[in-house]
Amino acid sequence: MPGYVQVNSKVVQVPVAPGREVLARRGAMLAYTGQVTFRPVTAAQGISGMLGRAVAGETVKQMVAEGSGQVFYGHLGLHLTVIDLTPGESLQVEADRLLCHDASLTSSVLFLGQQGGIRGAVRGAVSGQGLFTTQLAGDGSAVVLAHGGAIGLQVTPGRVVAVDPQAYVGHRGQLSVDVTAKVGWREAVGRGSGEAIQLRVQGQGVVYVQASEQKF
């Protein structure tokens, strides 16, 4: 099964076939060959997670690409990272940073309060993305957007990584993400209260960080 091809740092070429539909954020299609049609996805279509997203007031609209052909995706000149998931693995990413993924992946909206109680909820609030992130699981590929490109930092037991919430893109693996207020950090940065918070990532996996403090 031919997979996603990264044409350059900002464009990905994705195969579409019957049984291999692709979900992408609206407006991200650059070009396509073959017979492909695009249809907005709504909760009524029953794609897992969409109902939750609608309830959450999530504003990122998605289009499903169906048919047979090749679709080129990109968004606002942002750099892309292709992440291949194997069964049993999951990727958690802020909804705004998800460009496209195989429709076969199960997508669910996580309320961060479920993961880490009230502190988890704070995290969603400080990173400015609301309280919900998208979790993808299954066998397939996903493409994540990052301003200036993302680097993956390995997290292993005993090797904790602290991340600026503004630079956090997503993570995969068995990781827990905690919010901490680092002493001296707020004073050192001298900005709004959100900047006083750091994300402490521990466990076993990879955390993705972008080369910018900018949200999009």
Binding site: A162, D164, Q166, A167, G190, A211
Partner: peptide, 16 residues
């Protein structure tokens, strides 16, 4: 530059 830290590992302290 203040605020330019995107991540760190180890024991690091920050001050103005």
């Amino acid at each position: 530059l203040a605020g330019a830290m995107i991540a760190y590992e180890g024991e690091i302290s920050f001050k103005k």
